[in-house]
Design a protein around this nucleic acid. Structure first.
Length: 266
DNA sequence: ACTGTCTGTGCTT
DNA sequence: AAGCACAGACAGT
């Protein structure tokens, strides 16, 4: 489907992968958490991001991305862009984001936020190099945005992030992240986990109505660009082991220990 | 436990 | 109106 740039008939996929169409449906659901058709729709939407950049007109881009009509594009894909197609086609030059960095008691934090909320949160400690790596990661995520450092505007946000990083109760922060339909559902479920509690990957899968998509929940947690604010550290495995965490298992362990200790609550 | 067939339902074109 | 994908039920391995 990536080669084709969009969804493929189920029969065709089944022939290529040499398994039955029913089995393919089940495998997609188990591993990816979405149906083959839905996955293809995401591929096509991603494809549209590229054609929008290169085509002469929005309409051309929409058709060459494989949509049958302009209407279909606006219904299915335009929400994923996070801006109007014409803004996106122009490279979103006017999109302004602010960033700030601070030292928490535990680690160095760098946060990038747009008008609607936090869109990226990076962490580093003494072992790892900081500024260049962060810069690269930010550029990778937002290649066309204007990003300015503004510590004053971010002061309250950074303060709240420090609290969470230390395992203390903090005000909820607005987030502005885009993902697949499935990721969005997982991230929303993660934000429902109360401070001081944990859930298993299976719990989350159950909660979003995809009880089989346990591994997919794990991937969605891994794809979380704003740890702490979307508390993926509160998800552990059913057997009690920690599972994974982008910032390292030690950090995850410390966070959970601090959050569950009543003495350190505020 | 895993797999394929059959089938009713609902969405898309 | 026709075709297709989806997902539950069921039976065979």
């Amino acid at each position: 489907m990536h080669a084709a740039g969009g969804p493929l008939p189920l029969r065709e996929l089944a022939d290529v992968t040499d398994c039955s169409s029913r089995q393919l449906q089940r495998d997609f659901d188990d591993v990816l958490g979405v149906s083959p058709r839905e996955y293809g729709a995401s591929v096509r939407a991603m494809n549209a991001r590229h054609t929008l950049r290169s085509a002469d007109s929005i309409t051309d881009a929409i058709y060459s991305a494989g949509y049958g009509s302009v209407r279909a594009f606006y219904e299915k894909a335009s929400r994923r862009l996070g801006m109007t197609p014409s803004d996106f086609a122009a490279g979103a030059p006017q999109h302004l984001q602010i960033r700030s960095s601070t030292e928490s008691a535990v680690c160095h934090l760098t946060c990038v936020a747009g008008p609607r909320g936090i869109c990226l949160l990076l962490h580093s400690n003494a072992d790892q190099s900081t500024p260049e790596g962060d810069e690269l990661r930010i550029r990778e995520e937002f290649p066309h945005a204007i990003i300015e450092r503004d510590d004053r505007a971010m002061r309250d946000v950074m303060r709240a992030l420090c609290l969470i990083a230390e395992g203390k109760l903090a005000p909820e922060l607005p987030v502005d992240v885009t993902g697949t339909a499935f990721q969005t559902r997982v991230w929303a479920a993660l934000r429902e986990i109360p401070f001081g509690e944990t859930r298993t990957y299976a719990d989350i899968a159950e909660e979003i109505g995809e009880p089989a998509a346990i591994r997919a929940v794990g991937s969605a947690c891994g794809a979380n660009r704003v740890p702490l604010t979307i508390p993926c550290h509160r998800v552990i495995r059913s057997d009690g082991t920690l599972g994974g965490f982008a910032w390292g298992l030690e950090v995850k362990e410390d966070l959970l220990a601090a959050e569950s200790s009543p003495l350190r609550r505020q």
